[in-house]
């Protein structure tokens, strides 16, 4: 034990360690404050938190779990991008190769199960926030940011679902995206769309309606795959990351984790 302690102190007091973590072991209150304030990542947190808010039985850790799973998705997703090409010729075979050839071939598994888990975690987080009444003033706005994050999470999962380009993928997206056809006023089979006319010509048809815009064609095809890939790997993760920054900022600015007044 004494040796371990000595080793630990040796490391923590070395110049390398001290250049990274300024304060050393946070064993006094002063150092505990500095440890949080001095770190970019830790200073997402305030220096002190309500005791009731730290309880796992209060927050169920679900917000943090959602965030952690998002990070898992980003890391595994980036690794998948090394192997995966979003074209009809290669998409499916790349996934096959990934399955058979790639060392440590559990990235795909982790990405897929992580995606499912994240959807569930976000729902449970919303459920917790509702049950503790934490959407009430002053946190109304953060609840709304959360709702948008929920939608983005579902969209991420939806766009990702197409990427393996197997039967499961295209038919799930076919079913999912066929709804857009029925948008009132904007889908070619939606109510009132027949009323959008120029003289006798219907302006909304299968070649320009809401579904066409979503999947980039009259049916799921190469354009859809590319569109969903870009949305999935660039657009939505960036948007979600940005909103998470706002979300976390607002948790702080609204007075930290909620508690009875």
């Amino acid at each position: 034990m004494a040796n371990l302690r000595g080793l630990q102190e040796g490391i923590v007091n070395s110049q390398i360690w001290k250049s990274v973590f300024r304060v050393g072991i946070p064993n006094t209150n002063r150092k505990r404050v500095l440890a949080v304030l001095g770190s970019l990542i830790l200073h997402l947190h305030p220096v002190k938190v309500r005791r009731s808010g730290v309880r796992m039985s209060y927050t169920w850790c679900m917000g943090g779990t959602s965030f952690f799973l998002f990070l898992v998705e980003t890391v595994t997703g980036l690794l998948l991008m090394f192997y995966y090409r979003p074209t009809i010729e290669y998409a499916f075979t790349d996934i096959m190769d990934l399955r058979e050839q790639a060392p440590f071939g559990i990235m795909r598994e982790m990405h897929r199960w992580g995606a499912h888990a994240m959807v569930i975690a976000v729902w449970l987080h919303m459920f917790r926030v509702f049950m503790t009444g934490s959407y009430k003033p002053p946190r109304e706005f953060n609840w709304n940011v959360g709702v948008i994050l929920l939608v983005l999470t579902l969209l991420l999962s939806f766009t990702g679902y197409l990427l393996p380009w197997d039967q499961l993928a295209i038919w799930a997206i076919t079913v999912g995206s066929s709804m857009a056809r029925a948008s009132p006023g904007a889908g070619n089979e939606g109510p009132m769309s027949g009323l959008v006319k120029l003289g006798d010509i219907r302006l909304i048809h299968a070649g320009d309606d809401a579904r066409f815009a979503l999947i980039g064609g009259r049916s799921i095809g190469a354009a859809t795959l590319l569109r969903f890939y870009v949305l999935h790997c660039v657009v939505i993760p960036l948007a979600a990351g940005f909103l998470m920054a706002i979300h976390f900022w607002r948790v702080r600015k609204d007075g930290g984790i909620s508690g009875p007044l």
């Binding site: 949080v36 938190v49 309500r50 005791r51 009731s52 730290v54 209060y58 850790c61």
Partner: peptide, 23 residues
């Protein structure tokens, strides 16, 4: 019950950080 604890403040390090680590 939350009220009995909500006025008491804990240091983020170590109380919160360790919980997060465990999670």
């Amino acid at each position: 019950w939350e009220k009995t604890e909500s006025d008491e403040k804990l240091f983020t390090w170590p109380d919160l950080v360790y919980t997060e680590m465990l999670c």
